[in-house]
Design a binder for these strands. Structure first.
Length: 345
DNA sequence: ACATATACCCGCCATT
DNA sequence: TCAATGGCGGGTATAT
């Protein structure tokens, strides 16, 4: 396959099964098909650059989780060569994980595509097919534990919208699949086209890979926190610069340190210190992205002891320094990159 | 960059 | 007896 501007029509195949989530399928496919049509409209291509199709165990109807029925174009065996193979997610992944035919087919055919990957919980199937060992991946935040269990050797990026690791792409929740598809379009045709597609679909281009599932994670986690810790959690968010040591938090909650730590972890899924670090990191990331405050000032504002500790946390969680992160956000021409690329900095 | 100090976390067991 | 809580110790991670 070539990457020339007059390149071939690329086949994008989405793998489906009963119980798939409609948006996982249609979101990314819309991005590709719209990109293809735009190229034709601009006269840059004679025919749409992408050929999208849905593939399943057999050609025919697939029941989606919402009750809508989608028709798959063909069965696995009938699928010829594809450029990009994506696996969608949905409640049906649980059952699909028990389908040896599907898993075997994925294991042998996915790696043959130039690009392959998953949307949302589709990652569980890639894991089931043994394709994620040793790779950097992501999935819907609520299914990260399951993914970790299915692919113990995989390195899960908890705060990425999508992750690209070589030819393997994985994306977080439903709409993240569209962001990922957009990044693929950008890879194929450049940023101009990706921007146009985003514009047409009224998407915000520039939620790039290593950005922001985290706030959703935290928000979801904290909104599910009931009673006891609810007010503590919101207090934490509003007082990031305060002393948020376990000792203080425990005192504030009128509990012993031991018990506080135990209960907090049970309720929120994170240890107190991790929670605090995540909240502070998230705030710092926002300040970096949206303002031009000095690093030391951001650090102070978010409760990091110094610019140095802020930097440490940033490197640990994103693979890049705060300065590099800001720089990348500010370059308007920055490509839709992923964590892998940024790690190379 | 290294060393030392501190904070955190969690298993274990006593106490309530 | 059981479930929730509190305290201790020490291995590990992080800060300075």
């Amino acid at each position: 396959m070539t990457d020339s501007a007059t390149g071939p029509v690329r086949r994008i195949a989405m793998v489906g099964f009963d119980g798939i989530q409609v948006l996982d399928v249609t979101g990314p496919l819309e991005v590709f098909s719209l990109a293809g049509r735009l190229l034709v409209e601009r006269g840059e291509a004679a025919r749409p650059a992408y050929d999208v199709l849905l593939v399943a165990r057999s050609a025919g109807p697939l029941m989606t989780s919402s009750g809508l029925v989608l028709l798959s174009h063909c069965a696995f065996a009938e699928l010829g060569e594809v450029d990009t193979l994506l696996v969608s997610g949905g409640v049906g992944t649980r059952a699909a994980l028990q389908d040896p035919v599907l898993l075997r087919w994925l294991a042998t055919h996915a790696p043959r595509a130039r690009r392959y990957g998953s949307v949302c919980t589709g990652a569980l199937l890639l894991a089931g097919a043994g394709l994620l060992e040793g790779r950097r991946v992501t999935t819907h935040w609520a299914f990260m534990p399951q993914l970790a269990a299915l692919a113990p050797g995989a390195s899960i990026e908890p705060d990425a919208i999508f992750v690209r690791d070589g030819r393997l792409w994985t994306s977080a929740g439903v709409t993240a699949g569209m962001d990922m598809a957009l990044a693929m379009v950008e890879q194929d045709w450049g940023r101009r086209l990706a921007l146009d597609v985003a514009h047409q679909l009224v998407m915000y281009l520039k939620r790039h890979g290593g950005h922001a599932q985290l706030s959703a994670t935290l928000a979801a986690q904290s909104s599910s926190v009931e009673g006891q810790f609810r007010s503590l959690v919101s207090w934490i968010f509003n007082n990031l610069a305060a002393d948020l040591s376990i000792e203080r938090l425990a005192k504030r909650s009128e509990m012993s340190i031991r018990n506080f730590s135990r209960r907090f972890r049970e309720e929120t899924g994170l240890t107190p210190a991790k929670f605090v670090e995540q909240a502070r990191f998230e705030a710092a990331r926002r300040m970096l992205a949206e303002g031009d405050d000095a690093l030391a000032s951001i650090a102070g504002h978010c409760g990091f002891g110094s610019a140095e500790t802020l930097r440490r946390v940033f490197v640990r969680r994103t693979g890049m320094s705060p300065a590099a992160y800001r720089l990348r956000l500010q370059r308007q021409q920055a490509p839709v990159t992923d964590v892998a690329a940024s790690r190379g900095l």
